[in-house]
Amino acid sequence: MAVRILYFAWVREQTGKAEEIVDLPAGVKTVADVVAWLKGRGPEYGQAFARAEVIRAAIDHKHVQPTASIAGAREIAFFPPVTGG
């Protein structure tokens, strides 16, 4: 499944890219699965997601939990806790 993945703030700095299109294998079904799959792609991902518990995710502009299904997702974003306002 081809999905657009976006990274923000220090997650973007550590992966070294703002976005990419990836082809996820069929076994990748949840947000946590995506993180585990990304971590296997290279040391920069391993470092970016080393503290996976602090990283937040959104699917198609909505906040989601790591257990959320990615079925039908067009865009998945990973970022640190927000600090606006």
């Binding site: 923000f8 959104a58 970022f79 806790p81 927000v82 600090t83 306002g85």
Partner: peptide, 23 residues
């Protein structure tokens, strides 16, 4: 807004150092 809107602050310090603001 402070806990949900996807904004991130990066501070530039007087010492020339930069840091991301923690939630």
């Amino acid at each position: 807004l402070k806990t949900r809107a996807p904004f991130w602050k990066r501070e530039q310090g007087g010492d020339g150092k930069e840091r991301w603001v923690d939630a």
